[in-house]
Amino acid sequence: MKYIYDIRLIFDFVFSLGARLWELTGLPLWLYSQIKIVVIGSILLGVISLAVMFLIWLERRLSAHFQSRIGPNRVGWQGSLQAVADIVKLLAKENITPANADVVVYLLAPMVVFAAAFMAYIALPVAPRLVVNNFSLGILYILSISSLGVIGILMAGWSSNNKYSLIGGMRSAAQMISYEIPLVLAVLSVIMMAGSLNLSEIVASQKNFFDWHIFRQPLAFLIYFVAATAEINRLPFDIPEAESELTAGFHTEYSGIRFGIFFLAEFANMMIVASIVTSLFLGGWHGFGFLPPIAWFLIKDAFTIFTLIWFRWTFPRFRMDQLMNLGWKILTPLALLNIFVTGIRMFIK
């Protein structure tokens, strides 16, 4: 029971056992801690892949319900193995490399996009102490790493030597520079109240239900949610891959599993955004008892992702200039105002 409640105890047990065995071999201890990180990282990769497969199924089923369709329901129970079938299909598809592309950059791009998404998971605590590396600069690190992904998208757009891809990549960069500022400013007002950049400490500061930052910082929550949706190119901000005008945007020339990797990275990014929303605004792993902390975290995570999927079928897509206007003329001034108000409120009380 204790182990269900605190999964970290299992890791502690296994790794202390491993350390004993390692001492017998006489190899240096720093090597052991590196191997530990490799093991944790591999487990995390597995978890992410499984979660993404589940989310693909969820998104397709939910999309179908939103549109009064049935959706995939043939492979496995209620179509739950559809994602597995899709992966096998993608792996067995021919990979078409366009003749005019810059092949090195073309192949590196999916790697950069996924690695950038994956690296952000290091500083993400899902339960007390359950984090790969408890960076004291946690949220700053996640923000900076997750904005690296746009470089991969630009690489994909440029190296394909396709006009749609190029425009898609450029739009993605434009979107990043417009939404990074309100996003960071919204996070800053939470940091001002929590007094720490460490995500575990930010979550710890929201122990009581009414201390959740969604109640103390509702405006920051809204700004962050909108800006983050734009950062990960989800609808209604998906103009880098707007299918009605750019066919598939930056990944037009990617086929087979190479396209699959972009898809994987998109969902991995979605989970990061949902986890940050959960940690910063929804009280992280704090719940109402009767469930282990990690379950509360996952419930809030799932709800945030559901909202992101919901957005997709609710809002029409923005035009490029509307998108820039929303970022610079509405969200940025609002976020600045929010910082002023937060600062004054902190000292007036």
Partner: peptide, 18 residues
């Protein structure tokens, strides 16, 4: 070091399906 290990793992995870 965990940052570099994760970057390498991420890249390997992409290369494997390729």
């Amino acid at each position: 070091s965990s940052i570099f290990i994760f970057a390498a793992l991420g890249a390997v995870f992409v290369v494997a399906p390729f």
